[in-house]
Design a protein around this nucleic acid. Structure first.
Lengths: 102, 102
DNA sequence: ATCTTAATTTAGATTCATCTAAAATAAGGA
DNA sequence: TCCTTATTTTAGATGAATCTAAATTAAGAT
């Protein structure tokens, strides 16, 4: 699969962000989404095949972590996406605080 | 539509490259593809809405040109994609020349 | 051996982006 | 006004990516 297509899927972008600077077991990643583990596992496979994710096995668990270097120029895209998501959340929080309509 | 989704479509990536450093009428762009003008027009609309394309009208024609600034960090992705495509073509040509199997 | 936990794989269903075809718009010339 | 050229818009068809559910693998504990 083409690198751009790999990170263009919102779910996969989100997964990358989750394991951006820490290792997580597949289960913890799956728990972040309200889709089946199966679906998440399939996304992990795509990311792994693209080389964007490194896998470490330990017992029955599998840990994943982003491989930032492998992303090349796409790294900046992921970082920008993350930055903008945080900004969005911040702005929403401020708006919430501002009106206090509850 | 999300910026990343906009450039992730191969056809739209190709369109961006076509009007990267020159203006082209919609017709000339459509002529580059073997799909209907309608399909190309729809892609132009998506790119325009994302702000990645500027439109200039003159008589019955519409000219399009890429807005590189508007692409932000995605600009590097498009440029990289283009560079790699050229490289691929170059390598294919060299391989062809090397074997001369015709 | 069997059970449990963690995760993947497979097969089929669903959804969404893209495509085609046809009708519509818009500008300008005969 | 009618025709032509250039392009878009709309509506419906198609296909690829993603999803669910169920079966499968794999490691370790009882």
């Amino acid at each position: 699969m083409e690198p751009l297509q790999v990170i263009a899927a919102p779910r996969r972008m989100r997964i990358l962000e989750l394991v951006w600077d820490r290792e997580l077991p597949a289960g913890d990643i799956a728990a972040e989404f309200d889709v089946s583990w199966s679906a998440v596992s399939q996304h992990l496979t795509v990311l792994k095949q693209a080389g964007f994710l490194v896998e470490r096995r330990e017992g029955t668990s599998r840990f994943y972590r982003a491989d930032k270097e492998a992303l090349g120029p796409l790294r900046a895209v992921v970082e920008d996406h993350w930055r903008r998501s945080l900004n969005l959340i911040k702005h929403l929080a401020e708006a919430e605080e501002g009106q206090c309509s509850k």
